[in-house]
Design a protein around this nucleic acid. Structure first.
Lengths: 223, 223, 223, 223
DNA sequence: GATGAATGAGCCTTCATTCAT
DNA sequence: CATGAATGAAGGCTCATTCAT
């Protein structure tokens, strides 16, 4: 609109805006893709279905995304970013170690077992054989990055003399795995209809923290 | 229409063999299906490929299995049974608790991270959305049953006074999750090219046993 | 049926016959392709149309031919072979040089200006930009080979002292071009509705022979 | 419909400009079309590519040209005119017949075998089945007109007593065909990578002139 | 029962054309 | 008039499934 000031010569600027750059429509398409991919998985989702769900013509899909795979990757990326924002915030605030770990663990697990996160996991894992790059990217920017963040936190606590851990990277992984013990896997296989209740999550995370501290908490010197 | 001609009784007296009941051919088909499904995943595997790999005509596939999905389910079932046989044997032999857990953990993880087991996991998880029954069946007869077996073992050790565990079901899950900490997930996402080495597995399982016992080993009374 | 004699062991021979090897059906498909390609050209011909014209399902097309291009090439090859058979037979029989050249020229041109040959030419030329291999193959096995054959004939006549030609390859080309002068090009551009009449062809070929001999006939010594 | 609103007379008094009448923009579009059509052929050229090559929006294309076909026809017409201007100029200047014919022949063939002329030929021939009008128009305004011009020249030479030709129309065609003997066809089928060298052209044209005169040159009376 | 040629629905993708801005 | 995002029909191709032999 106002991108063509009076002084602009006749030479047409090519593209006022990049093709397929309307962010609203892009979001609209991703929403439709979300709905269909989540409901059906990658292969069983058809571009026609997605176009219909997004209320967009099939052609428009290809204006915004190169092909089905790119659309799917874009969707995964959007959702991952959205999730990451919600997990690692108040990790260091709480001075009480047990409290901090519990808090963080509960938040993380609640995120992970959500209907959507589980679906995304399932799909990415399902296509990981054919699209190893997507799988790796997902792993590295998701679980691995999470573990690294916790490892950093543990490092600080070790330095502060609150924990005694040789291998904080391993310890971080252990903590994550303990927090989801018995919760994530049945969801991954779609063996339970609903996400675990907050109470269940609390119980498992509490047990995780207890075990974690039983192993790594610095015992008072004099014993 | 002509399924019961005059000369042929409803129940043939001497059925040469039930439809699709030649066990050798059935095995042959499953072998071909194994090869192709593992290499390509569920959707990308074509019935033609499977027929070729099994050295069988496409029509024969449909004599032995109702459709692609049933063939896949049958394959998963067969493979799961084969695997289960190899894992839970020497669980109780060893009188030394740490030794027994270590032994079992290492064996189990080696099984799970194998190229084949990972592929099977990926596929089942990938189709779990569309085929929830398969996912549940796989989970219940695989991981869940494994955990139950460990829980039973733990129960016996609790009864024997060697361990102090309230919730052995949870403890069993925790043990399993600790044993694979940092090993299984990257494989699941195909983020690492090769299975972990035996040394890596040993290290992680050792850490798992240590943490497990730090939490649940019965401390000498007077303490 | 009788291909499995009593002594044949259980090991199934893979494929009694190669896939897509029924020659009748192959011919049937090529006939349909002929009709559609000739009527519409390469790009405007759709595989659906061809399938319909051949009275075959779309899938069957792909059992017999790898893709649209291969189908087209196969068609061109079939037609070229059919044509070649009809052209170069009685080239050397006639002892009278002018008679032989006239005979051959008329036969060849009649073949070339036929509705079908023209269509094939147009299509191959039309796709030559994108499919240079096809164009080259067509040229080398068609016009070029024809010219070579004539060149060989001329060589023999030169050796026999009937003609005086330095460059028989060029002379052969000249003869061919003279024979079709004003006949082929308008057909190629579809600028005339119907093939030239036999009378027209005779007239042009006669003029071609006359000019050809005016240039290359050995004049009696003493002249 | 609303093409003549009340306030607007049928013939607008001061039409700013007729629809699609900016000759610069028209030229700009044709230049883009030239580039793309020549590089890809008619069907494989997309209107998007043309719009991009012309630095014009796709919509503008349709302001200046009714549809893809009309655009293509307009392009062909423009190019033909450009070419014609370069060929038939110095046909009558040279008093020496052989020299004049050679000169003209070489110029014409050099024009015809150029990369661009060949592409145009291929495309027009390729679509001639679907667009017979275009093919005819191209033929009549190109080769046919060229032949007519030569025929006129020959007529004059016959009148001048330099040549003895019954059918100058046929003779003109013969001359043209001889000039390109072995040069044009392989190019048309894209069977040779590059245009023939000037030396090759000279050789063929020289042979053409020689043969032409051997047939039609008036022999000195007394002979 | 075994075969594999045939089917045809359906998939992803392209592109000429339109139309709101 | 210019723009280019949007459309949707159509294209080439695949593959689970059927059925005559």
């Amino acid at each position: 609109m106002s991108e063509a000031p009076a002084t602009m010569p006749t030479m047409p600027r090519r593209r006022r805006r990049a093709a397929g750059a309307d962010p609203d429509k892009r979001r609209q398409i991703l929403d439709g893709a979300h709905e269909i991919f989540i409901a059906r998985g990658f292969d069983a989702a058809s571009m026609s279905d997605i176009a219909a769900a997004a209320n967009v013509s099939k052609g428009t899909l290809y204006v915004y995304f190169e092909d089905k795979e790119h659309l799917f990757v874009a969707l995964i990326e959007r959702e991952r970013e959205a999730q990451k924002r919600g997990a690692f915030e108040a990790l260091d605030e709480d001075p009480d170690l047990a409290h901090a770990l519990t808090n963080f663990g509960e938040r993380l697990i609640r995120l992970l077992v959500s209907e959507f996160a589980m679906s995304a996991h399932r799909i990415v894992i399902g296509v990981a054989e054919r699209m190893p790059d997507l799988g790796r990217e997902f792993y590295e920017n998701g679980p691995m990055q999470g573990a690294q963040r916790i490892a950093g936190y543990l490092d600080r606590k070790v330095a502060a003399g609150q924990l005694a851990i040789d291998d904080t990277a391993l310890a971080a992984m252990q903590f994550l795995d303990l927090c989801q013990s018995g919760l994530l896997r049945p969801r991954l296989f779609n063996a339970v209809r609903k996400p675990p209740s907050d109470a269940e999550i609390s119980r498992v995370v509490a047990a995780a923290v207890e075990m974690f501290l039983a192993r790594y908490a610095k015992r008072p010197a004099g014993r």
